[in-house]
Design a protein around this nucleic acid. Sequence first.
RNA 1: GCGCCAGUAGCUCAGCUGGUAGAGCAGCUGACUCUUAAUCAGCGGGUCGUGGGUUCAAAUCCUACCUGGCGCACCA
Length: 492
Amino acid sequence: MEVEVNELMAVRLEKLEELRRRGIDPYGGRFDQTHLSSQVKNHYETLEGQEVALAGRLVAKRGHGKATFADILDSQGRIQIHARLDILGKENYDLFTRLDIGDIIGVRGSVFRTRRGEITVEVKEFRLLCKSLRPLPEKWHGLKDVDLRYRQRYLDLIANPEVREVFILRSKIIRAIRRFLDDRGFLEVETPTMHTIAGGAAARPFITHHNALDIDLYLRIALELHLKRLLVGGLERVYELGRIFRNEGISTKHNPEFTMLELYQAYADYHDMMRLLEEMLAYVTRETLGTMVVQYQEETLDFTPPWPRLTMFEAIKKYTGVDFKEIPDAQAARAAAEKLGLELEPGLNKGKIINEVFEAFVEPHLIQPVFILDYPLEISPLAKRKADDPTLVYRFEAFVAGRELANAFSELNDPIDQRERFEAQLKERAAGDEEAHMMDEDFLCALEYGMPPAGGMGIGIDRLVMVLTNSPSIRDVILFPTMRPRDNEDKV
RNA sequence: GCGCCAGUAGCUCAGCUGGUAGAGCAGCUGACUCUUAAUCAGCGGGUCGUGGGUUCAAAUCCUACCUGGCGCACCA
């Protein structure tokens, strides 16, 4: 690709050539860091006067004739360095002043504190490790253009320190989740991302093709059905933290690929899952934020267990005054929903109508962590039927900040019932519902061998990270969110 | 998919009752050995998102398209 050279790049390319003429490799080699910027800053008392070696990107430069201050940025943050003509000698000092903002350098020198109190490294020697050819974003305002921030996240990370903090926190959250589950005897596993049947959720899949087998494959839309096969196989506590792909719209809450945690525990039920989730969130918030009280946008969220438990019928009654428990069929449910002002597409069954009412009138109110229990059977084809009401299942969703945080059931382990559920889904698919589940004979076969009763749960990791990092958009917690590609010609 | 908003120098932004395109940072030249948004003096830098149209004249008005943001719809 031909690189369009603007004036700023031309100047840097000329400096690059000059360095090469002087026998200096502008792209350096390995460099032994003795310390990170944070270590120098946090242990000044013991390091004062000591020699340290730091490496990082030059992000600011303040020249004063025969001396120059500069800031370098490493993985831990910024630290000031100071270069003096009388220490470096003319040739090296000139080289230092010719460095550009953006260049990556290694410096060796002694630690001191300036008159104004800033911990600084007095450069004794330095080495260019990488010449930067493009100018960085503006130092004070950073990079604002969201298009560029997402497309060129590396610039976002250099220019906007709070972005780095979000992704560091994301990593800590995931680490805490792993530790929590590992400590409870859960086994982390990996299952296929390419499926011959896209199952475990209601969503449109991406389709790809395997040449050697000459078959189409689906990118997975859920982890569920393979993890349950592992319960059949006797791995009694399993979890997977994995990427899921759904071929649907993009919004502040949706990215086509996102990260899901699913876990399954044999001999447990959905009440155990509620307790597990409460404990997990208490642990994760304490470990990563040091508190169970989290500020998210305008709301203060308190994750301290236990969270309230409310059946879906109770929740709907609370916010609409209508008791759908007393409503006998789809026709009556539709009438009640429309009376509340909801517009419904034709042909919905009772369970779907109840869910529509719930999403429209209840979900937005669910700010503090809460469990909503006992979902309609029709929208829950993989959950165990309730013993005292066969139209409902042992399922809950946890909500926080008006959005779904987790979805869990007592897992359906009756293969006969499961087959009937799949068949009902097939009818919906035939009737035009592209998101209805597909039949999965192999999964049914596994169930027929026998799956222990189990509790299972799915947690959208990106949305959890959004809440814990106070990020308004899912794109703020995904390093490289899906974007429409741009023509190379448009790039500078 | 629909609606609203935005796109001007490498970056952050002004300019929009039509009349030769501006600032700050960054860059270049010079001065300056404790600055930290360093300072001071000077200089260079633009297919004004793209294509049509109206007009003597378009960054500015109209139109289509491209890209993005937000909201709605979709998303068990």
